[in-house]
């Protein structure tokens, strides 16, 4: 699969959140989107998730313009927003079943997949508790499960590791790496270590502009493999320019 972002610009009045940004994202490995808070990552994610329309440019999923035909993207999409949204008076299986019903997945299939997802994200022991009793990290895992319900060919996750403990972070990375073999997985974060060992491709955005696009090896070429140093080097370079 191929997701092609062409010359995207997003303006909010006088503020430019994204400026003439172009990227090619393919399946076969996790694509990491890195940038400081307010760099424009979430705006890009929302555009790709068909929640926002850009001011200029277009986005093609396997050659189909998703801005003109958003349902093409929605049929293939699993999306985790930055702030996980849940219905607090439901249990995790009930909530996931609700999402499955909206995704038109029949009850039997949904039940099987929900059981698997709860096991994958270590939520099975808490399946009878309401989401209002869950910690932030547990809710995050429920949100990721909701994104993975069905068979999304494009997975877009915005800051997925927020609130997760180290064990769960590693678990999550492994899951995304596995899924990315046959799917597009676009992971946005401002935590470099989240993508250090996971991403095959990464893009660095600052103030709505693309500073780097390539492999992690290319990214750290001048810093002996040090991701954070490379990140700072690119950011400072852009600031001084």
């Amino acid at each position: 699969m191929n997701l092609s972002i062409k010359n995207i610009t997003k303006e909010y009045g006088a503020v430019t959140a994204l400026s003439d940004l172009s990227l090619e994202i393919t399946s076969g490995g996790v694509f990491g989107l890195v940038g400081a808070n307010g760099a424009g990552k979430s705006t890009l994610m929302k555009i790709l998730a068909t929640l926002l329309k850009p001011s200029k440019g277009n986005c093609l999923l396997d050659g189909v313009d998703i801005l003109k035909r958003p349902n093409m993207m929605r049929q293939a999409l699993g999306y985790l927003p930055q702030d996980v949204a849940v219905y607090p008076n439901l249990t995790a299986p009930e909530f996931l079943d609700y999402i499955a019903a909206l995704k038109s997945i029949n009850a039997a299939d949904a039940k099987k997949q929900i059981t698997m997802l709860l096991e994958m994200f270590n939520l099975a022991p808490y399946r009878k508790r309401r989401l209002s009793e869950y910690s932030g990290g547990m809710r995050q895992r429920v949100g990721i499960s909701a994104a993975l319900i069905g068979d999304p060919k494009v997975i877009i996750v915005d800051e997925p590791s927020v609130g997760l403990d180290p064990e769960e972070r590693i678990n999550l990375r492994n899951i995304f790496m596995e899924m990315a073999k046959t799917r597009i997985v676009l992971l946005s974060t401002h935590i470099i270590s989240d993508i250090e060992t996971t991403a095959n491709q990464l893009a660095l955005i600052q103030k709505g502009k693309l500073l780097f696009h390539g492999t992690p090896t290319e990214f750290t070429k001048n810093t002996n493999g040090d991701m954070e140093a490379a990140y700072l080097s690119y950011s400072e370079g852009a600031a001084s320019a």
Binding site: N106, M120, D151, I170, N171, N174, M179
Partner: peptide, 28 residues
């Protein structure tokens, strides 16, 4: 959960169905 090795992804794909989805949606 094994955290030191790669997990085996126990994730089977399911596809949207058109059968009785109205009833299921309303029921949920």
């Amino acid at each position: 959960i094994s955290v030191t090795t790669r997990v085996k992804l126990s994730y089977s794909a399911v596809s949207p169905s058109q059968k009785n989805m109205w009833a299921r949606g309303v029921f949920t």
